[in-house]
């Protein structure tokens, strides 16, 4: 049983998925109160600049290197309702494609003014916005050395664990998207496009900052429609 708009767990083109996915089918069960509930995070955990990655780590008066961008959009459920109080956490590489992480083997320099993470809680109309810099592409070992398209990692908490999502936003027009096995692990070609942040020239600031629009859809309360019947029922 496959949800065609969600990636396959085992997708041999993405080599590490081979040993890091189960061999047996998962068991489809009805969600219970455990999946229909979840932690709720309050505005109180957010500092004013948590969603500004050009400011939240930099020294006073300094800025990280790279093209400054806005990434913004709405979080909705499957029925198109805007979702408020959704905690969004993002993380990304710096402009050179280097992560502030002890396990990143790249010898590209860290940017002393860039941490690479941010947080935001969607407003009453489901809106979110981050200010950051465009991350660099970076190489990783897969089938030999391959390059990840530029991307920002997104983590979202809806109002129940069923909606919990970790995903990535890619950048419109990035030529590395086409060959990325992580994107291509999604069988539905149209669903892959949902991961692309679209250039949004309506969202700029002083003609210095580019805008990208990235809307995110979380599952609704209803059971998703499955193309195949559940086994054993």
């Amino acid at each position: 049983m496959i949800k065609k708009h969600q990636p396959l767990r085992k997708f041999p083109d993405y080599k590490s998925s081979i040993s890091r996915s189960p061999n047996k089918e998962p068991l489809w069960i009805n969600s219970s109160s455990s999946e229909m509930s979840g932690p709720l995070f309050s505005e109180k955990i957010i500092n004013k600049n948590d969603n500004d990655l050009t400011l939240n780590f930099s020294k006073i008066g300094e800025k990280p290197l790279g093209q400054e961008i806005f990434v913004h959009g709405f979080v909705k459920d499957e029925n198109g309702n805007n979702l408020k109080n959704v905690l969004i956490e993002i993380w990304q590489a710096n402009a050179g494609g280097k992560y502030r992480h002890q396990n990143d083997p790249s010898n590209i320099k860290l940017d002393e003014n860039f941490g690479g993470c941010g947080r935001f809680i969607t407003s009453s109309d489901g809106y979110y916005i981050f200010k950051t810099i465009e991350p660099g592409a970076y190489p990783y070992p897969n089938r030999g050395t391959e390059w990840r398209p530029r991307h920002i990692h997104f983590s979202l908490f809806g109002s129940m664990f069923l909606q919990r999502l970790i995903t990535q936003m890619y950048f419109e027009g990035d030529p590395l998207i086409k060959s990325c096995p992580m994107i291509n692990s999604i069988p539905d070609i149209n669903a892959r496009k949902l991961l692309i942040g679209r250039l949004d020239l309506s969202k700029t600031e002083n003609e210095k900052i580019l805008g990208y629009r990235f809307d995110i859809i979380l599952r609704g309360k209803e059971q998703t429609f499955f193309e195949n019947k559940r086994e054993g029922l």
Binding site: G80, L165, A191, R192
Partner: peptide, 10 residues
């Protein structure tokens, strides 16, 4: 229904 955004590796 809208399609929910695909998951990607963390």
């Amino acid at each position: 229904k809208l399609i929910d955004t695909p998951s990607q590796t963390a």
